[in-house]
């Protein structure tokens, strides 16, 4: 599905969105009023320039439009793989972007992200997973690494990984697995203004409640251990 089709479906009341160097930025009208729309398209491999463009747009929004919700559209194949990018500390620019999303949250901006196509590793960490809540379209690919590459790196037979993936959501790619693990709030069958309005209506509560992904993963039987470990660490005697 093209970015324009996605935008038209999410924002039938209107959107003014610019795409430059695979970075999306603009505004749109929703049932809850004007929102900032930002993110990446065409499976962008996030580099310094993209991270700084997104970060700059967030800072502009926080300064000029207090409280305006942020809607992130996520389509990233991960981080740019290049020596010159690493030379300038790419993890630093991704951390800066994440910190801008976090500041917006502290300043009262609700945020949600929608994975439209791909969400991979560092690219997903730097903004999609920093939103108050993350959603994914049904055909979206969400992963750290595909199973064949994982088999090569871990030296575990691909057939064995495929077999285990049928019962465990812990390592295999897929939005459904991230849903069960609590990383994704819900999967949308298609981009929809009604689903977006419903999500925006509850996202402020999510912001107030803090990071609930662990409890969510427990309730969905995807991540059974983490919440109890955190509880023990927080309450054991020192």
């Amino acid at each position: 599905m093209s970015l324009n089709d996605i935008l038209d479906s999410l924002f039938p009341a209107g959107h003014t969105v610019n795409v430059e160097n695979k970075v999306i930025s603009g505004v749109a009208t929703t049932a809850q009023g004007t929102v900032a729309v930002l993110g990446t398209t065409d499976a962008a491999a996030i580099d310094h320039a993209m991270a700084l463009a997104l970060a700059g747009f967030i800072l502009d929004t926080v300064e000029q439009h207090p409280g305006r919700p942020l809607v992130f559209l996520v389509d990233t194949s991960g981080q740019a793989l290049s020596r010159s990018q690493e030379l300038l500390c790419l993890n630093g620019s991704l951390a800066h972007l994440a910190q801008c999303v976090d500041l917006a949250r502290r300043q009262g901006h609700a945020s949600l992200s929608l994975v439209t196509a791909n969400a991979v590793s560092g690219g997903f960490l730097s903004f999609g997973l920093m939103a108050d809540r993350a959603y994914a379209l049904a055909d979206a690919q969400v992963r750290v690494m595909d199973l064949r590459a994982m088999a090569r790196v871990t030296k575990i037979a691909h057939e064995r990984l495929v077999e285990l993936a049928a019962t465990s959501p812990t390592f295999a790619p897929g939005a459904e697995n991230y849903l069960r693990m609590g990383g994704i709030e819900a999967i949308w069958p298609a981009p929809s203004a009604a689903l977006l309005a419903a999500a925006l209506a509850t996202v402020s509560q999510a912001r107030a409640a803090g990071d609930q992904r662990m409890q969510c993963g427990l309730a969905r039987s995807g991540r059974r251990l983490a919440a109890a470990v955190v509880n023990s660490v927080c309450h054991s005697a020192v």
């Binding site: 590793s121 960490l125 997973l129 750290v144 690494m145 575990i156 959501p169 390592f171 991540r223």
Partner: peptide, 14 residues
């Protein structure tokens, strides 16, 4: 940790 890739990625976000 690739053997727990989804748990690890979400944990790093947390």
């Amino acid at each position: 940790r690739l053997h727990e890739a989804n748990a690890g990625l979400i944990a790093i976000s947390e």
